[in-house]
Design a protein around this nucleic acid. Sequence first.
DNA 1: AAGGAAGCCAACCGCCTAGGC
DNA 2: CGCCTAGGCGGTTGGCTTCCT
Length: 296
Amino acid sequence: MGRQPCCDKVGLKKGPWTAEEDKKLFNFILTNGQCCWRAVPKLAGLLRCGKSCRLRWTNYLRPDLKRGLLSEYEEKMVIDLHAQLGNRWSKIASHLPGRTDNEIKNHWNTHIKKKLRKMGIDPLTHKPLTTTQEHHPQQQQDKQKKQAPKPGDARSQAPKEPEAETSLKSTITEAKEEEPMNNIGIDGFCTDEVPLIESHEILVPNPAPSISSSSSSSCHSSMFLEELQFSDFEWPCDDYNTSNKELSLWDDDFNIWDFLSNDDTDKKLALDSLSSPLMQCPRMGFDQDSRPYQLL
DNA sequence: AAGGAAGCCAACCGCCTAGGC
DNA sequence: CGCCTAGGCGGTTGGCTTCCT
């Protein structure tokens, strides 16, 4: 017996998300947080399956996502991490704040693989290609696939977790040292400044002592959450195309960090609540000076 | 300029695993 | 222990864009 589908597929919408759907999902998650994805579409008034909603949120709507091409530094990180972790995209993504596993996987398949081959490096093994490999890369890949333990698994290609994690730190440190100072983020928020904090080290800063911990309540900022729902914000509905490039949440017209930048502590508090367990969005938070930081 | 080919990437599918109940 | 769900993953698809002829 197979598993039950994640949802009743009859009458559910598939394909590209519309601006309206995005808005519904975004607002729903903002007000209710992430919980029980199966129930989300129903409660949010969407004709989508829960899995689709989850993917849309994690891959596109999450406020802490970076958009755009991977920087050279990020590419280098991906290559290094891939050499150590194999095709464990989520693990790799967890070391690149604001990037999703899908995004990294796509970038790997479309850009990095080619780049490495061009450089004479086998993207699978990260070792120099032999002459025959260079001439028949695809053939070689197929061969390697057949020799590989069992599909699925990339997991088996990679060394076991602890070793990988240990050697990883040196690689990351190394890569960080080489990173040029060219990726100052919006409003001076530099992604380089993102502390590499383990999950157990995550603290939820509370800039305004008078307000209870963001993790304990979601209601203290409800009015600001309302504001965060962008009720006045113009969502490009009609001409919203499938590649979603017009969606301006993160583009020049509107950026979540821009939204934070105008020294409005209340807004920051509201968004702080988004980084609380309620939102289960542990990559985002604010430091003592109310400067945003992202967590791994 | 037009049309086909190639590239890109969001989204989906099916399967697996982990964890909660 | 078994069931269910979320999350993770590899592989794939399909629509849009860009490139090439």
